[in-house]
Design a protein around this nucleic acid. Sequence first.
DNA 1: ATAGTATATCGTAATATTACGATATACTGT
DNA 2: ACAGTATATCGTAATATTACGATATACTAT
Lengths: 110, 110
Amino acid sequence: MGVTKTQNFSGAQNRVARIAKVLGHPARIAILEYLIKQQVCICGDLVDVLPLAQATVSQHLKELKAAGLIKGEVEGTSVCYCINEPVWEEARDILLNLFNLPLSNASCCK
Amino acid sequence: MGVTKTQNFSGAQNRVARIAKVLGHPARIAILEYLIKQQVCICGDLVDVLPLAQATVSQHLKELKAAGLIKGEVEGTSVCYCINEPVWEEARDILLNLFNLPLSNASCCK
DNA sequence: ATAGTATATCGTAATATTACGATATACTGT
DNA sequence: ACAGTATATCGTAATATTACGATATACTAT
């Protein structure tokens, strides 16, 4: 993403942006939706379900894991991925905080 | 952002990702927070407030405008930028839809 | 008309992202 | 031990993002 002067913005601003950035790719949305929907998180299935190569899916999973939104558990040969609920909820709250700020400029700009 | 096989994902997935992507940079979060806070959206001020060059601020504003989250109105020499409420609320709803999906895997992965 | 101010756009360097094939790693069953 | 399966990592090409100086555009006041 180019250079991004992260250090010049507040911790809170960076936190919102970080979460949003991870959500900023349709493949990662698809992965999250799949993990949310499945009772059992059979996760090799993701490679079958998604229109992407195995290496690419693995890379997206890595980013979601790095952001803490999902967690993975080795189960024999395969790995079980799931939503990491506490972080997932924290992410929702952080985004909601932004959207719930009171708009004070109702009459501004037509 | 590399190639992004957008066309292989659903419209809904792309919509979520598109919104999140725009929110995925601290400068744009800072801009949005500023516009939300200010009663009057004196917008040349953004250049003073943000730790970025004028051209860079303009570029971020353009992206926010392209996503529909803000709107701009020329006022003499300067331009007044504001939150575009309908789209802003739609964005919140689209993100909330994702976070409000029922998690069916409470007992999955330790 | 001219100078001054504000914002947008252009061009471009540095860096990040996306995607995938190839390969490495790790486990399972024989 | 060995072959087979599942996942992760490496290397890399194509493309996107970020940032900024320079310049263009647009309006205002004199």
